[in-house]
């Protein structure tokens, strides 16, 4: 019998691998951690949000301090269509 938590987490890791560079570190990691905690049954909203933000932000600024460049993400493609529609 397959363990659904395990399937969920493996899928989540594959999604993270795929979306890290397009979405950028901050958004991808935030979603990754938040969903990971959810999949494993963490339901307290304050805890969920607080831990996600502290970790993602903390790691991002630590790497920035060490001058290691994390993926910023490329959001230009997302807006292109919208702007064209407006124009």
């Amino acid at each position: 019998m397959l363990n659904m938590e395990l399937v969920g987490l493996v899928t989540l890791m594959l999604l993270y691998a795929g979306f890290l560079e397009p979405l950028g570190f901050v958004v991808a990691t935030g979603l990754f951690l938040f969903t990971g905690f959810l999949v494993l049954g963490e339901r307290r909203p304050v805890r969920l949000i607080l831990i996600t933000i502290t970790l993602t932000g903390g790691f991002y600024f630590l790497m920035a301090a060490l001058e290691i460049h994390l993926p910023q993400g490329d959001w230009s493609g997302l807006w292109e269509g919208t702007l064209e529609g407006v124009a």
Binding site: L9, M13, T29, F32, L33, G36, F37, E42, L55
Partner: peptide
């Protein structure tokens, strides 16, 4: 474990 496991994964 709900906090620990995603952390190790990350």
């Amino acid at each position: 474990r709900s906090i620990l496991i995603p952390l190790i994964m990350f």
